[in-house]
Amino acid sequence: MQCLWNLNPRMSQCTYWFQKQQFSYKEDIYDEWVIFAVEDGSFHYEIGDQEGIASFGDIVICPPGTTFYRDIITPLSFYYIRFQWVDGGVSLLHSHESIPVGKVKFKDTRRLASNYFRMKSLAGSPDPFYLSWIAVHLQDILYLHYAESIHSEPKEDVRRDPLMERACRLIEQKAYEAFSMKALSDELGLTPVQFTRRFQSAQGMTPSDYLTGLRLKKACTLLITGGATIEEVAHQCGYENGYYLSRLFSKKLLMSPSAYRRTHQV
């Protein structure tokens, strides 16, 4: 397993799919390594003699030349990643004892979610180097798997924080209406600075980033599932106007709402 440290992923593609209802193909064979990294929802898979159900906290790795059977159980948001394993400049076209195949489950889902959050902003970017940046996050995810596999308990204290879990629920309840983070921190009995630091420690991102992620996720859904205008989408997501949503959307997802709608509508 230690050989995993010597391998580097050379990216070919990274596509983010949001709430996909069904796969275009129930089975496929790829000429490169493939990862389905689940952000939300679940699907059933079969790879060789391995079979199971993958959901958040899991990635599924399929080697080249291997039939990958899959079927969505609940609407699936995931990262579809194609890459080659490179060892000293040489591509590994077949499975290797150091490379996990099938489902890999993670304990530290906060670190996993943090990598996903950054990958989402990069996927489909016009930046010619965006795949190299995504490879950095993919490598961190794989290193995390290695670290968890050789330690029965993580060295880092990853205990639950019930108050911040409550904060997540409150943000989710209020996400699509105008509300104040200051009022929320007051409700939790914390100063805004204490709230931000504690939330980031527990969730791997600031409360504002968490809120933005929820709103942009809804915006993505509205853009590809209906004919609402940008102004209407903005109001349904808790923003005052379409101009602000367009600026934020372009900054975070590296494409305009109209470009996202053209790209993702099928």
Rank of each mutant, 00 (worst) to 15 (best):
S132W: 05
F117I: 01
L131W: 00
N115A: 12
R118C: 03
D127N: 15
F179C: 07
S185Y: 08
L144T: 10
A135D: 07
S152T: 09
H151E: 10
Q139D: 11
A175M: 03
D127T: 00
I171N: 02
K174V: 00
F129I: 08
P192M: 03
S152L: 14
V193W: 10
A147T: 09
H137K: 10
E187K: 11
H145N: 14
K155V: 07
M181K: 05
A135G: 15
E153H: 11
I171D: 02
I150S: 03
R160F: 00
L131H: 04
L188V: 08
A147S: 12
V136I: 14
K155I: 06
Y146V: 08
L142T: 06
C168Q: 14
P154C: 05
A167L: 01
R159T: 11
F195E: 01
F195Y: 11
T191I: 06
K182M: 12
I134H: 04
D186F: 10
F117R: 15
Q194E: 15
S114W: 11
S152N: 12
S185R: 08
H145D: 14
S132M: 11
H145G: 06
S152I: 04
R159Q: 13
S152E: 13
S180N: 05
E156H: 02
R159D: 12
S149C: 04
D140G: 02
P128A: 05
A113W: 07
Y116G: 06
I171C: 10
R169Y: 02
S180G: 10
M164F: 01
S152H: 12
S114Y: 09
H151T: 09
R166K: 15
Q194P: 02
Y143R: 15
Y130N: 13
V158C: 11
I171M: 11
F195P: 06
M164I: 05
S125A: 02
A183M: 09
Y143H: 13
E156W: 01
S180T: 10
F117W: 07
P192C: 09
L170M: 15
D161P: 01
L122G: 03
K155Y: 13
S125N: 01
Y143M: 14
F117V: 01
A167C: 01
V193L: 15
V193R: 13
V193I: 09
K120D: 06
E172V: 08
K120Y: 00
S152Q: 13
Q173T: 08
M164Y: 01
E177N: 04
V193D: 14
M119P: 00
S132C: 07
K120W: 00
I134G: 03
A178G: 02
K155T: 05
L170N: 03
L131A: 09
L131P: 04
A183K: 14
F179L: 11
Q173N: 13
F129E: 14
H151F: 13
P126D: 03
C168G: 04
L122H: 05
L138H: 04
V136D: 10
Y116Q: 14
W133T: 09
V158I: 15
D161E: 12
E187F: 05
A178Q: 13
M164E: 01
Q139K: 15
D186W: 02
A167E: 10
R160T: 09
H145Y: 15
N115E: 12
K120T: 05
D127L: 00
E172R: 13
I141R: 01
Q173W: 03
L188W: 00
V136N: 08
Q194A: 15
R169D: 12
A123E: 05
A147H: 11
L184Q: 03
A167H: 07
E187D: 13
S114N: 11
P128N: 02
I141N: 10
